[in-house]
Design a protein around this nucleic acid. Structure first.
Lengths: 216, 216
DNA sequence: ATGATTTATTAGACTAGTCTAATTATTGGG
DNA sequence: CCCAATAATTAGACTAGTCTAATAAATCAT
C-alpha cells in the first residue's frame, strides 16, 4: 500500500466524517478539502478501484475494511506525533495540529515505532482521543470481512475433504484473484467471481479463508 | 519564498556539489536526483527565473546569494532534525538521514525554532557538520551582493542630496523592480535596468541600498 | 584538428491532481 | 406531484514534474 499524500487526505476526511456519523457526500468532502466536486469524484473513483472505499451516489463514500485500516494507521501516526510534540517540545495548538497534519504523511512506520516506544506506548493523545494500534505489513482479512466488489487475492485456504475439492475444482486457490459479487441474507453465503466463473462460499468457509486486498 | 519539495531537492543537490567544489552540470544533477537531463534543464530554467540560480552550459548551475540562503535554511533544518532524532530517539543511520531528508521539507520555521531551543542551540550535527544560522523572513540583501540578471525589488535607499535626486529623477525608488545588467571592473559600479532605462550605481551607493529578490 | 564520445537541448507526450462550464440527477417545498 | 434549488457528473483544459527519441553542441584522444 503506497498511497499518495492526496489520497491519504481524502481517506482521512472520509474517516472523520464517519466518526461524526455523517455521510461522505461529494459536496461535503469537496468543502473540507477545499477542492471542487469533479476533483472529488475523480478521487473517489480512484480510491474505489484501489479497494479503499465503495462509493454510491446517495450513500456517499464508505471506507472498506482495507480503507479503514489505512485510515486508522494514519490517525495512529497523527496522534502519536501530537503526543510526542506536546510532551517533548511543549508545542501548543494550533501549531501542534498543523505540524502533525504534515508529519503524518512523511514519517515512516519505523520511526513511528520508535516514537511509540519513547512515549511508552500511550493509549491516548493530548486531547484524550484513543490511539489506534499498529497493524503494519500486508494486512490480511478473513473473506467474510471483505465488502462486495473489492478485489482480493487468496492467501490461505485451510480446508480439507470435499470442501477442499470444491475449491480445487473451481480454481479457487491461493494466489488467485476474486471479488464478492453478492452476500446472502444473514451473511450465510458469499457469491464470489473471478470474472470467469461464479462460486458460492458458505459463511463458515469464508471465516477461515485468508485474503489480502489488491489494487488495480 | 515558497519552493516546492522538488525545487528544494534541486537546490540542495546544487549546494552539495558546490561544497565538494564540483560544477553542477546537468548530467551530474540528473544522476544524483535520479531523473533525466531534460527534466533537470526544465528545472534549471525555472530556478533561474526565480532568481535562485544562474545557469551556464559550461559552468553548470550556480546558486545566487538568494539561492544560497534557501539552501542553507534547508541544510540547517536537516542538521537540526538529525541532531534531534539522534539525541532524543536514538535513531541511527541510515534511518536518521532518510527521515531527516523527508522531514526537512515539511517542518515549519516555527517548529524548527522549538527544536533548536530544545537542543540548546547546537552548532554542529551528529556528524560534526556545522549547523547554519537561522535567517527567517524575507531576506534582504545589499544591492552589490545580488548577481547580474536576478530581478530584485528595492526596499530602502538611505540617500541624501544629489544622490537622492539622481535616484528620484530616474524612478530608482523603493518598490520598483530592477536587475543588474553589468558589473564594472573591480565592482566599482553596477549597471542596472528596469527594462526601460539603464542606470549606473556606484559601489558605495550599492552597499547601502537594501533589496529583496523577486520571483517571476 | 577531426572524428568519436559524451553532454545539452528540443520536441512532444504522459500522469496526477486540479479547474471551469455545461449537463444531468436528486431532492425537498408548495 | 411538480418545479426550483442543490448535488452529481461529464467534457475538456491546465500545471508541475517527469519521460523518450531525436538533434545539436562540446569535449577529448589520437
Amino acid at each position: 500500500m503506497d498511497l499518495s499524500r492526496t489520497q491519504q487526505d481524502y481517506i482521512k476526511a472520509i474517516w472523520n466524517l464517519d466518526q461524526l456519523d455523517k455521510k461522505a457526500k461529494m459536496k461535503v468532502v469537496a468543502d473540507i478539502l477545499l477542492v471542487k466536486p469533479p476533483t472529488v469524484l475523480a478521487m473517489f473513483r480512484q480510491l474505489s478501484k484501489l479497494g479503499i472505499i465503495s462509493y454510491d451516489k446517495r450513500e456517499g463514500a464508505k471506507l472498506t475494511v482495507a480503507g479503514r485500516g489505512e485510515a486508522e494507521q494514519l490517525i495512529r501516526k497523527h496522534r502519536l506525533i501530537e503526543t510526542f510534540l506536546r510532551s517533548v517540545l511543549k508545542i501548543e495548538e494550533p501549531l501542534l495540529h498543523d505540524e502533525a497534519e504534515k508529519l503524518e504523511h512523511v514519517i515512516s512506520d519505523q520511526l513511528i515505532m520508535k516514537i511509540d516506544e519513547y512515549l511508552n506506548y500511550p493509549s491516548t493523545d493530548p486531547h484524550g482521543s484513543i490511539i489506534p494500534l499498529s497493524r503494519v505489513g500486508d494486512i490480511q482479512y478473513a473473506l467474510h470481512e471483505v465488502e462486495p466488489d473489492i478485489p482480493f487475492k487468496i492467501i490461505q485456504i485451510p480446508m480439507a475433504g470435499k470442501e477442499k475439492n470444491y475449491c480445487i475444482d473451481n480454481d479457487f486457490l491461493p494466489g488467485s484473484e476474486w471479488k464478492i459479487k453478492n452476500v446472502g441474507p444473514k451473511n450465510e453465503s458469499f457469491l464470489v467471481t473471478n470474472s470467469e466463473v461464479y462460486l458460492a462460499i458458505s459463511d463458515h468457509m469464508a471465516e477461515k479463508i485468508k485474503v489480502t486486498i489488491i489494487r488495480r
